[in-house]
Nucleic acid binder design. Sequence first.
DNA 1: CTGCCGCGATGAACCGATTCAAACCAGAGC
DNA 2: GCTCTGGTTTGAATCGGTTCATCGCGGCAG
Lengths: 343, 343
Amino acid sequence: MKPPIGIRDVALRADVSVGTVSNVLNRPDVVAAATRERVLAAIAALGYVRNEPARQLRSGTARTLGLVVLDVGNPFFTDVARGVEEAASEAGHAVILCNSGESADRERGHVELLAAQRVHGVLITPVRSGQASPRWLRERGISVVLLDHPTAEPDLCSVAVDDRHGGELAVTHLLAEGCERIVMVTGPAGVHQAAERHRGARDAVRLAGRPPDVLEVLPAPALNVACGLRAGEQLLARAVRPDAVFCANDLLALGLLQATVRAGVRVPEDLAIVGYDDIDFAAAAAVPLTSVRQPRHELGRTAAALVIAESQAPAEHEHRQLVFMPELVVRESSRRPRRAGWP
Amino acid sequence: MKPPIGIRDVALRADVSVGTVSNVLNRPDVVAAATRERVLAAIAALGYVRNEPARQLRSGTARTLGLVVLDVGNPFFTDVARGVEEAASEAGHAVILCNSGESADRERGHVELLAAQRVHGVLITPVRSGQASPRWLRERGISVVLLDHPTAEPDLCSVAVDDRHGGELAVTHLLAEGCERIVMVTGPAGVHQAAERHRGARDAVRLAGRPPDVLEVLPAPALNVACGLRAGEQLLARAVRPDAVFCANDLLALGLLQATVRAGVRVPEDLAIVGYDDIDFAAAAAVPLTSVRQPRHELGRTAAALVIAESQAPAEHEHRQLVFMPELVVRESSRRPRRAGWP
DNA sequence: CTGCCGCGATGAACCGATTCAAACCAGAGC
DNA sequence: GCTCTGGTTTGAATCGGTTCATCGCGGCAG
């Protein structure tokens, strides 16, 4: 099988022209049934596989999507990615998955690479909100959808979840459970999602008519398990411990849970914990974790659908900013025992 | 920025021929410094981005790798993928990540798609051991490396971890801790890795001079948290419970741990648990999980390096079958208290 | 019998970058 | 002054499909 099989080889064997073979592949209906069968037989016999880059070069349309996420190690993003992949392959597209690792430089590198590949469209969770990468792509005629990140710009599609509302849900719940000293563990300063969740948390305090100092902030350098552990140790070292922690992310919450349980702190009796994302490991933790669920799969699916729609009809495309609603899932980690005598 | 910028536009602006622009891009050393600067300036001014598919068509060499894994939801594979991505981008390659979800049909679909893309090489953790997909790719001139799967075939590269030895380590440890009734929770029948770990487990029993019925097998329908939960419930329902469980995978182990802890079983006093893969969540579990660590990152890196090496010099390439050694990481979940009076 | 119609098939031009034989040019050597 | 040399630059051919104007042919109306 040394010489690669091309469309000419197929044409030769089926005794038709190359144009006809191409038609069988792309517009089977214009080819007579008998001819079509003959060509398909030749394709099968030779084991021909279409050269996609050549097709793309001539036709100008790619069958590839780019997906740039903040952290492939975070199950939230892998679930989003699965949704994207599902919708993409239904539409006959491949997905190039890139991991920016929360680094703007790496994001930039991946975006340039995707542009060079002339992908059909790009789904991106930007590292920073400035939208440099999305703009750069659009200037080069590539459709972009912001993923898990809202935008006010009317000329950009976005799919997001209402993080502010999610934060509000979490803290409202903690206040209702009778918590008095809540710490929110957020991410690094630039992370938009974490900042919004914090705003929502403050809203909840205000709406409950409580003084602002009920809620304190503890920033973590990254949104992963290791940083959660460290945050937990910091809190344990305090003279006055909080009675509840709201983490910007389940990874942080799981790390924090580990640190506290190991130190003998009872969860939720001594300390209530709420996470965010409701990843599968949250329910599977030894103390099942209360968390704010996001429709991750739907998020990926709709983002992919939007970018495919946009790139197929760029002219009459209406840019849309979709916002999904999060949902609180209460589990053991935040269910405080009612005081005796209460109903 | 309506009309896409091509190499001709750059040539025109820099007042050189298209050949020279191409040389600046691919063999900068043959171009005079002054000319080179002029061309680079034009590229920057116009915001030119190379059309990779066109390059690939003419030159015949792609800058893209395909990676097909069993389950992107499993942190083991995402860590492997990170290693692959790291090595690939150092060599200037993009990675198309595909998820077979342990389905042979989906694997086949992805493999055909990668072949159509004319990727430079493919790294694949095959769903079945028959090697249909790898062979099919090789017949079409695409380099293949088996990932996390050994092979006896001398004409295929592979990178694997000694699963049999890993299984032996795990069960030897449990026996040394004094466990008498061990259950191994394996995966579905076809999964090669799980089967090897089971063989290793039996080796351990034999080498310790114990009767074979010390070790019992409980197959799970898939290697995920949900199946681990179910397996745990099954074991709890038994009249005679085992005193140790070895899971083919950390996801199973975490699910099982959750089920048992929730039911009030003490880990490790009543039940010792050992997992496999040593994913980050294993250490962060409420009862830190003893596990068999695999060099996942290295696995990905070396596999990528191998496939790049093979596809760059297919002629003199020597196929290699690499096997890494796993390592037991003992944590709380299997550390049984010594009986009083012992040293 | 002739002319027209339309379905199917044809094949050459083309997409954008790479490649390479050939042209070009400046300076060295005779 | 002329040739030779080595470093640069040129431009046409090329990669493998897609596209589309064109052609062949059988059937049908006039």
